Amino acid sequence: MPVISAPEDFNVDDLYVDLQWISGRPLHLKCEGFNFAGSIKLKAAAEMIARAERSGELRPGDGLVESSSGNMGVAISLLAGSKGYRFTCVTDSRCTLGARRLMEALGTEVHVITEPHPEDGLLGARIRHVKRLVAERPGHVWLNQYLNPGNWLAHFQTTGPEVLKSFPELDVVFVGAGTTGTLMGTARYLRHTKPSVRIVAVDSVGSVTFGTPPGPRSIPGLGTGVRPQILDESYVDDVVHVAEPDTLRTCRALADRGFLFGGSTGTVVSGAVSWLERHGRTDGMTAVAIAPDLGDRYLDTIYNDQWVEEIYGAGVLDHTARDTGVPSLPSRGTP
């Protein structure tokens, strides 16, 4: 019987969902949302704060400042409350209402940026706001997840080893690319311990992370408007870009089977299915995709028909499986 004294002490690290029914090929989804922060970001947040404490940069009574589209902000909010730090999260208008309310419930001061930077978009505007806050508020520390090595080190120490422990014969792993902390840590570990594993990064269309042109994005999580400084593309074998309508349809397909995942997870699964289809004979391949989040914070967006139609237009969910790479699903109740 687990008994914990701090919320960060609990995390489920060995739960996988068999997705052969959606991919048509063997594919296992590593579920990272079963902790008190509700996402994989708790791992990185804990490591970054611990590093700041060990170095003396962060002291009792100090405040934390970070830019986040939602999940990292929630994770830091939880840890700040647990450890007694003040926290100000700088987010933008794409952050879901659920994530904002959760951060505020945990005592976080939330600043919402609505005007994008002319070159670096909303992320660039958020980072500039963070720098102003730190300059104006003595005793406040910016963890800077886009540069902090603790972001990827957390996954080098945990996520990578967890995947390989569960699947020693691993052939390919699909990892979403946001700040690229999960991607870099997992990829570094696997490259050093099992170099034959193929690392496939999954990004959003409109993200500049891998040098593609910027474009509008409405789903928070994966993708960036400013290339993350911790990214090292030498650890990445392939990149798959997923359009947001495909993310929506994949999330809805998973929900039809009772699996309510978040936007980042829908993107990763869509990218994994697309990659496996393009690479033909993969039946004997051991493939794992990492699911960063659950879907409860997306009830007012991805799972809200009105929001979907307002952003993407009527009929976006009616496209055939051929458009998305997601196989057609039987209706509920059909064996």
Results as ranks from 00 to 15, higher is better:
residue 246 D to L: 11
residue 249 R to K: 15
residue 209 T to E: 04
residue 222 L to V: 05
residue 188 R to S: 12
residue 181 G to N: 02
residue 246 D to Q: 10
residue 258 G to T: 13
residue 259 F to L: 15
residue 205 V to F: 13
residue 253 A to Q: 02
residue 191 R to I: 06
residue 187 A to N: 07
residue 208 V to L: 13
residue 245 P to W: 12
residue 234 S to D: 13
residue 214 P to S: 14
residue 234 S to L: 12
residue 259 F to P: 07
residue 184 M to G: 08
residue 175 V to P: 05
residue 189 Y to F: 03
residue 172 V to D: 02
residue 224 T to Y: 01
residue 230 I to H: 01
residue 192 H to K: 14
residue 242 V to Y: 05
residue 166 S to E: 04
residue 203 D to L: 02
residue 176 G to Q: 02
residue 242 V to H: 05
residue 237 D to P: 08
residue 160 G to W: 01
residue 158 T to M: 12
residue 192 H to T: 11
residue 185 G to S: 14
residue 250 T to C: 11
residue 247 T to A: 03
residue 229 Q to V: 14
residue 203 D to I: 00
residue 170 L to N: 10
residue 247 T to F: 01
residue 197 V to E: 07
residue 213 P to I: 09
residue 239 V to C: 10
residue 206 G to Q: 08
residue 232 D to M: 04
residue 163 V to L: 15
residue 224 T to Q: 03
residue 219 I to C: 00
residue 163 V to I: 15
residue 163 V to K: 05
residue 220 P to N: 03
residue 187 A to I: 09
residue 213 P to V: 04
residue 208 V to I: 14
residue 179 T to P: 06
residue 213 P to D: 04
residue 217 R to W: 10
residue 186 T to H: 06
residue 253 A to T: 06
residue 208 V to F: 12
residue 168 P to D: 11
residue 174 F to K: 01
residue 209 T to L: 04
residue 211 G to I: 15
residue 200 V to H: 03
residue 232 D to E: 09
residue 208 V to M: 14
residue 199 I to V: 15
residue 195 P to M: 07
residue 195 P to H: 07
residue 252 R to D: 13
residue 255 A to E: 13
residue 259 F to E: 14
residue 241 H to D: 06
residue 202 V to D: 00
residue 179 T to W: 03
residue 256 D to R: 15
residue 167 F to Y: 15
residue 180 T to V: 08
residue 237 D to L: 13
residue 198 R to Q: 09
residue 212 T to D: 15
residue 175 V to T: 11
residue 232 D to T: 05
residue 158 T to H: 09
residue 250 T to A: 09
residue 229 Q to D: 15
residue 163 V to M: 12
residue 201 A to L: 02
residue 209 T to I: 11
residue 236 V to W: 00
residue 257 R to C: 04
residue 255 A to H: 11
residue 257 R to I: 01
residue 176 G to A: 00
residue 158 T to D: 10
residue 182 T to R: 06
residue 188 R to F: 09
residue 164 L to K: 10
residue 188 R to T: 10
residue 228 P to N: 08
residue 197 V to L: 08
residue 220 P to L: 04
residue 171 D to I: 03
residue 245 P to A: 13
residue 242 V to I: 09
residue 181 G to H: 01
residue 165 K to Q: 03
residue 191 R to E: 01
residue 259 F to C: 13
residue 238 D to V: 08
residue 248 L to N: 01
residue 258 G to D: 10
residue 203 D to P: 04
residue 178 G to K: 03
residue 176 G to C: 00
residue 215 G to E: 04
residue 183 L to W: 06
residue 243 A to E: 15
